[in-house]
């Protein structure tokens, strides 16, 4: 199952909110959709959720066009918006029951499905509570539960972790891992890039309505760094090791920590291996030698300028 977004464009009057966005992802992948405020993330996600129509371009979910067959595509997509439900005078259970009916889940299955999802998203205890009386975290869970009712193949989550307490964030992360393991394709926007790095398999970075970078997370992070960062923890002799490193070719800089050194090293994997061998040959006792992965935050700061539409 694949989601293919092709040349998506959305204009609001003279403002081009999304300008020729293209990317794709498949089952089991968790894609981080990142960009500064006003970059066009929410607009793109709303189009993918069929809430808005693109000015041009299209997206195809499992062979179904969002523009031509939005009704069919809706059976495949679950959407959690950044704005929480505003329904008055309705309980959590009634809200889920309404959406289950709207998704035409037959009565016999509906009762079971709602119970299971309430349990899965930890809503059983608050099912009779009024939606308006819920905290943001609880509302977020209700939103997620609603998006899961029809067992969609694709989940589009717009800022699902915003405003959640640490416990709720960890729970959400675990849930997303479960969905990914279930084979759902997940597109998720967030400003908390460190968290995204932990669960995402890929990323799409967008700014001013255009995609700046998109790809598998490992590829993105590795290919973007010309100079690798190596962390070395010796068993004593930190200063001597520091001096040795500065003498060796490829070293661009060394930063000393309490018991370790962080080295900016320009060289291939083989050259990095030679570096380790040379250090051992010089009598340094190395307890730890590893390459520090560039993170999404660094990548984001490198490729974006902070501009908005």
């Amino acid at each position: 199952m694949r989601v293919e977004v092709s040349n998506l464009r959305k204009e609001f009057g003279r403002t081009v909110a999304v300008d020729g966005v293209s990317f794709s992802f498949s089952s089991g992948e968790v894609i981080g959709f990142v960009g500064p405020n006003g970059a066009g993330k929410t607009t793109t996600m709303r189009i993918l959720a069929t809430l808005d129509e693109p000015t041009s371009g299209d997206a195809v979910v499992d062979g179904v066009s969002l523009v031509q067959d939005p009704e069919e595509a809706r059976t495949l997509i679950g959407f959690v918006p950044d704005a929480l439900p505003t329904h008055h005078d309705i309980t959590v259970h009634e809200y889920l029951d309404f959406f289950a009916r709207a998704y035409r889940i037959p009565f016999a299955r509906r009762v079971r499905v709602i119970e299971r999802i309430e349990e899965f998203t930890n809503l059983t205890g608050i099912r009779q509570k009024n939606l308006k009386s819920l905290s943001k975290g609880m509302n977020q869970r209700v939103c997620l539960a609603r998006a899961l009712l029809h067992d969609p193949k694709v989940l589009i989550l717009d800022e699902p972790a915003a405003g959640l307490d640490p416990r709720a964030r960890i729970e959400l992360r675990e849930l997303i891992r479960v969905f990914s393991a279930q084979g759902k394709a997940i597109l998720m926007s967030s400003h908390i890039l460190t968290e995204l790095s932990e669960i995402c398999t890929g990323a799409v970075i967008i700014e001013r309505g255009r995609v700046l970078k998109a790809g598998n997370l490992d590829d993105l992070l590795v290919t973007d760094s010309e100079v690798r960062t190596i962390v070395i923890r010796p068993l004593g002799g930190l200063d001597a090791l520091h001096r040795s490193l500065l003498e060796l070719p490829g070293t661009r800089g060394v930063r000393a920590g309490d018991d370790e050194l962080t080295v900016q090293y320009a060289g291939s994997d083989a050259e990095a291996s030679d570096l380790l061998a040379e250090l051992v040959r010089r009598g340094h006792r190395i307890a730890e030698f590893h390459q520090q992965r560039a993170n999404l935050e660094q990548l984001f700061m490198n490729v974006t300028t902070g501009g908005v539409q």
Binding site: S6, F23, F25, D58, V60, G215
Partner: peptide, 16 residues
Amino acid sequence: ETPAMEGIVPELSAEG
């Protein structure tokens, strides 16, 4: 049949 989009969109590549 309606032409499919296969091949038009490279997987996870920037086309902006």
